[in-house]
Design a protein around this nucleic acid. Sequence first.
DNA 1: TTGACAAACGATAATAATTATCATCTAATA
DNA 2: TATTAGATGATAATTATTATCGTTTGTCAA
Lengths: 146, 146
Amino acid sequence: MEHFRQQCRDRGLAITHQREVIYRAMSEMRDHPSPEAIYEVVRASLPSISLGTVYKNIRTFLDSGLVKEVSLHHGSLRLEVNTTPHHHLVCVSCKAIVDLLEEDVEPVRLHRRRPSGFQIQRISVEAVGLCAACAGDAGPVRKSAR
Amino acid sequence: MEHFRQQCRDRGLAITHQREVIYRAMSEMRDHPSPEAIYEVVRASLPSISLGTVYKNIRTFLDSGLVKEVSLHHGSLRLEVNTTPHHHLVCVSCKAIVDLLEEDVEPVRLHRRRPSGFQIQRISVEAVGLCAACAGDAGPVRKSAR
DNA sequence: TTGACAAACGATAATAATTATCATCTAATA
DNA sequence: TATTAGATGATAATTATTATCGTTTGTCAA
C-alpha cells in the first residue's frame, strides 16, 4: 500500500481513505473484477461509499496508469464474419481492429503450469499498439473517453 | 450470399430481406464494426430498418454461430492491478479471466506481412476455452445473456 | 497549527448501449 | 393460397457509465 501512496504523490492525486480501500480491494481480487464487483467488496468496509466514487476513481487510476483494463473493446460489441481462426492487431488509440492471418503468427506454445482443469479451445493473439494513422506525425488521434 | 442462405436454412432461420442486407454489410466491412456502425451502413439500402432489428439479428447470428464477437468482455469494464506484461486464460462460458504468466508462454513471433505502419507495443495472448468449473460434469455454467 | 483552496465525495440526473415488449407483417410450408 | 410461427418496427425498459452539483476533506503555504 505504500507503493500506492507513493504513486498517488507522484501523480498529484490526493490520498483519500476511499481510494486506499478501492485500490486494496482491486489488489486482493484476483479475478479481474468489474466496477460493480469492486463496489460490492469496498462497501463491506466502507458502507457509505457511492458507486459513482468507485467509477470515478477507477477512471482516475486508469488515466494515470495505476491500473489497466483487460479488454480494449468493452464499450461496445464488435463483430466479425470471419469465423475461421485468426488473430488481431488492435490500436490502443482509435481502437481499430485489423486481422492478422493465422499463418503470419508462429504457433503459440504454452508450457508447464497452467490453472488446473482449464480446457483450451483456441489461442488468440492480440498485437496491441498504434495503427499507421494514430502513429502519424499529427500525433495520436483523439481517443474517445470510454 | 448463398452460403448465408444455406446457413439460415440449416438453422431454421427465416431468410428475410433485412437479414440478408445486415449480413452482406457485415461481410463487406473489414473493420470489425459495432452494431451502430452496421446500422448506419444498412440504412443506406434499407432506410426504414430499425436499430432494434439490427441488434436482434446480430444476437441471432451470434447465437447460431454465423458471426463472432471480437471481445468476450464487451459488456463491462474489467480491471487488473498487475501492470506488468502477462497473458490471460478466458472462459467462454462464465467469462472468468485468469492470469497466465509471461514465462509460461513462449515468445510470440510474427512473420512477413503485417499491415503497414502499425507499431506493435505489446503482444497479448488469450487462451480461450472452458474453466474447470464450466467444463465439469454438471455441464457448462449458465452463461449470462450478454 | 490553521486557513484557503483545489480536489474528492455522495447523491442524483443524464447519457449510451442493449434488451424487452407488443401490435403488425411476412416467410415458410402444407 | 391460407395458416401460422417467427420477424419487424416502434417504443419502453434496463444496464453500464459519466456528468453535475452542493458539501466535505486533503494539501500546502503562512
